[in-house]
Design a protein around this nucleic acid. Structure first.
Lengths: 339, 339
DNA sequence: ACAATGAATGTGCAAATGTTCATTCTAAGT
DNA sequence: ACTTAGAATGAACATTTGCACATTCATTGT
């Protein structure tokens, strides 16, 4: 961590350069240091996120679709980004920003958050702006995964978010998945882990991504915890996606094929008890996974883009038709999502 | 205002330059435009605040002093910045940031804000980050002043803030001060002005600076509405400062020498009726003005730095001693500030 | 005491950026 | 159709920035 005077100097220099638009030479002269030093301070300021660049994407939301999602899946809030540019490269970053703004608005001093892992979660956390008034502690919701991209791990995410929210990070010092149920139980009985899990359960807000068990992209396979084969088996047995490492079926029921028990982290029931669970996911490839996730009844606030939202609603309607529930008006509260 | 595709382009370019750290040449090549165009888009992106630089100052507050201020002046909240660097040049910017974060936290969708003019107000508004979830309309609390720095005028401040909060700005199309009471009444009876003033009175949140009637720096003299002489007279007659153009005495009573009636804007009584009035002021030169301001009972939330806070508390204690109120423990609610 | 290691600082140059001015395009008026 | 004001563009140049490398400074081990 950065100590007060260092941090203050970085802030000072960054402010002069980026806000007052002074040249590095001018700053150097005023502070009585060499220009190259100013250059290095600026570099450090960016690295340490003492200065943050926030892009204000033009956000257009889709209130009709948001209302539909809320009705069909009993959500408290849905945030649907209406995309414009054909270029989809920034879609996740923009949805992340949408989620981050929502988060910023609901957080209050002394709340506790819990986060899991993944790119969606990362994007939200990254888009949260520092300078929060007050302190929010952040607890890891699941164990750590040896990932290709270490910044996407739940531990680093917890750290980054805690730094932005002026609170402490609490780490779950365990792997996300272990080899046997016994090993998992053993770990869970450890004092440290018990304490952190208990804290996570009492969190005010949880932030989750939805994984879709795709052998090509799943963090499970990348981390070496599941082979492509095992994943395929799980999918055959009805698993469609996961949140916080907990796999569920397309009906939103926990997967019973014996994987979830080996995960060290919050269970779906734990999540359901958290007052505000916010989930982010985009991509039509994730349609089934998202459908299952929304039906678990875990999610209170869901954040996505228009294409995904439409695909999910479409898919939900089809399933409903297949179950021959008559006339499912989107204005009536149906019971699909409840568990 | 910026239309969607323009805004999107600016965001795109800004993201490539500041986040992905591409050179202007590379961006130009990828988008198929000239480098110079990219340069201009970047410039525009900064001007329009499509990209924003947020400095993460290590903010240290002074809770003891905050509590004292709250007690002595019956404030709902006091925000006191504990300064570190001997360099005071950034003090106002940082106090502004402190105020802005507080604002961001209390604002809710569909609220209405009202703002006056001045550098302090400007700093707060400038530090408010765009991307607010929802809409907040902003109403001018006082008429416009022909200022040296037009960006400090209430009309431009209202515009900037409204843009950031995704709402409409409502302008009070009148000068701040007119030559006679009759002229003022005439103006106030105009439909337009009546409407806007009524709206300002019903605002949920007001943002004010505290002026100290210093001939050298007062916006009144700069705007040509008061000569240095007149100002001196007002000070002799007991006026110590102003908020929203309304002058008050060190006891927090409205100044009765006949200036306030010529101002087109919210009166102190109007302000007192607004649920949340936030005021910002720093500088030991403003001690007396701030003391009077706090005693008007108008202010709910006060934002300043440590030196100023101490000076004001000191000054308040002296006045109390002079009035020989015994044993003014700071833990007891005294009655100084009430009007 | 003396080398050795590594962090902090400075130099010089190539690359990137900002600015000015002339030119081209656009569109509205006569 | 021609003119003209004003915006958008681009070329050329001055300034600023980033970086590789050299140097100094402090610290630790022998």
């Amino acid at each position: 961590m950065l100590d007060y005077t260092e941090h203050d100097l970085l802030a000072q220099v960054a402010s002069m350069y980026y806000l007052e638009e002074m040249t590095q030479d001018a700053i150097a002269a005023q502070l009585g240091v060499s220009r190259i030093k100013v250059y290095r301070l600026l570099k450090q300021a960016r690295e340490e996120q003492v200065i943050q660049f926030t892009i204000n994407w033009p956000v257009q939301r889709a209130p009709e679709v948001e209302a539909q999602l809320c009705n069909v899946f009993h959500l408290r809030e849905a945030l649907v980004l209406r995309p414009s540019s054909p270029d989809r490269s920034h879609a996740l970053a923009r949805v992340g920003q949408l989620g981050a703004r929502y988060l910023e608005q609901i957080l209050r001093n002394d709340m506790v958050m819990t986060v899991c892992l993944g790119r969606s979660t990362y994007e939200v956390i990254h888009a949260v702006r520092p300078g929060f008034q007050g302190h929010v502690d952040v607890v890891q919701a699941v164990g750590s995964l040896a990932l290709a991209a270490p910044e996407l791990d739940s531990a680093s995410l917890a750290r980054e978010l805690a730094a932005k929210l002026g609170g402490k990070a609490h780490y779950l010092t365990a792997p996300m998945v272990v080899d046997s149920v016994e090993a998992a139980e053993m770990l869970r009985s450890q004092r440290d882990i018990q304490r952190v899990l208990a804290m996570a359960r009492r969190a005010d807000v949880a932030l989750l991504g939805v994984g879709n068990l795709d052998p090509a992209t799943s963090e499970f396979t990348k981390g070496g915890y599941l082979s492509a084969n095992e994943l395929a088996q799980i999918r055959t047995a009805g698993g469609v996606g996961d949140m916080s490492g907990q796999i569920f079926t397309v009906d939103g029921l926990p997967y019973t094929g014996g994987f979830n028990e080996r995960v060290i982290g919050l269970r779906l029931d734990d999540l359901r008890a958290i007052p505000t669970v916010m989930a982010i996911a985009i991509g039509e490839a994730k349609t089934k996974a998202i459908l299952g996730a929304l039906r678990t009844g875990v999610i209170d606030v869901f954040c996505t883009d228009l294409d995904t939202a439409r695909a999910v609603l479409e898919s939900a309607a089809q399933t409903r038709d297949a179950l021959s529930i008559p006339n499912p008006s989107s204005n009536l509260r149906t019971n699909d999502g409840a568990v």
